[in-house]
Design a protein around this nucleic acid. Sequence first.
DNA 1: GTCTATAGTTCGATAGAC
DNA 2: GTCTATCGAACTATAGAC
Lengths: 239, 239
Amino acid sequence: MVEPTALRFRHSRSTPESDDIAGTRRETPELILDAAEAIFADSGFDGATTRAIAQAANVNPALIHYHFKSKEQLFEAVFARRSEEINARRRALLAAVMARGDEVGLEEVFVAFLRPTVELGRARSGQGRHYARIVVHVASGTDERSRRLTSARYDAIARDFIAAIENRVPGLDREAATRGYLNAVAIGLSLMAPTGRARTLSQGACSDDVDTLVEDAAAFIAAGIKALARRSADKRGQT
Amino acid sequence: MVEPTALRFRHSRSTPESDDIAGTRRETPELILDAAEAIFADSGFDGATTRAIAQAANVNPALIHYHFKSKEQLFEAVFARRSEEINARRRALLAAVMARGDEVGLEEVFVAFLRPTVELGRARSGQGRHYARIVVHVASGTDERSRRLTSARYDAIARDFIAAIENRVPGLDREAATRGYLNAVAIGLSLMAPTGRARTLSQGACSDDVDTLVEDAAAFIAAGIKALARRSADKRGQT
DNA sequence: GTCTATAGTTCGATAGAC
DNA sequence: GTCTATCGAACTATAGAC
């Protein structure tokens, strides 16, 4: 028993326009994307429901299917929107680093790689913060959807960064560069999602400052890759 | 429309005993745990259904609730069984490394940490291989269940390894040791789940050999931690 | 574009016979 | 300990009025 002719949704006449931001009413697809991003982040694809998303967006449940056809395609739209944003920032930062030539080291390459994601994931507020938990899920998943989305959105940027690594460490073989890159991805992902583990294990000794996180991680990864370079050089020397 | 009095389950008279292994009939709870491990790995907690698990176990659906009370408690049992096995192996390997005193380096600590999980995740066959994908999910999740299970099963071993790291790198501060450990976890997780990404990005140049994976990763991590040690020493020197 | 109403499944869980 | 039968609740998706 629902109260008759209840006007619960945003375009109903005379409802308070809580979706206005600075006088700009946002469009329904965008409202749905934002709500979906938060709900998918909290619950995962299977745990999330289109009903919960519609409720969070303050939108009629049927509009999700009108605008996005299916839950599956909604998820893909959520994933695509933010990953393109991140990779655009990464590309710009990487280009700036590479333009400066040999004066900057390998560390700076990983700062360019990590900063956009860590900033997004560690933001105090804002929509992007939710995406961090989604990408952690997708990037480490082995199901068909995860593999497809990861490949579609991150293969190109991966090749760019692997090339940059090889450029900064002359003679590095393809295997070491790839492994180094994948280790950077793994560390980056672990910094994005606030599992609270650093705080628990260090009893509060771990910094949450984005600059410190990024620079320490970049130094860690750069040193690791140089160790891989030495190992494969040694291996070649033995034969 | 089900065929009348179909004898579809394992304890029905005169069914072929395909669950016998070397003449030992395995118990129902164990059959359920094994099936659940595979299904949860493929589909995640929310994507898995108790019906699918029962079918894979060749067991009546009601028995899941009889033996494990709920889907939730079944998942926890699956997680606990294998994590205890892994951590027992890690503890034994770590003790052997530490007993050898200063003659072995930091790398060996991470070989002890990584080998049990990478071997499990990369096994050609066997049950354990499924657990790898489950732990990747749980360790990177931010939901209440993931945090609780990770803390319950991995806090103790984490403290042991952080202590070992501090033992091998004199003067290393707590923050660097914790970050180094968490980076080792991140890299270890990325090696456990076969996302196929190394093969894709390196066009087949990446080895799948467990020894190579473990030793390269251990060298990478050890070098990264030494870089963190230098950084915090520099920072202290500045003040 | 938005909404109501609902079809058509599928889910976790349990009662009660054996 | 095993099985049948089923409950009640939730789900995605759509048809059709406005």
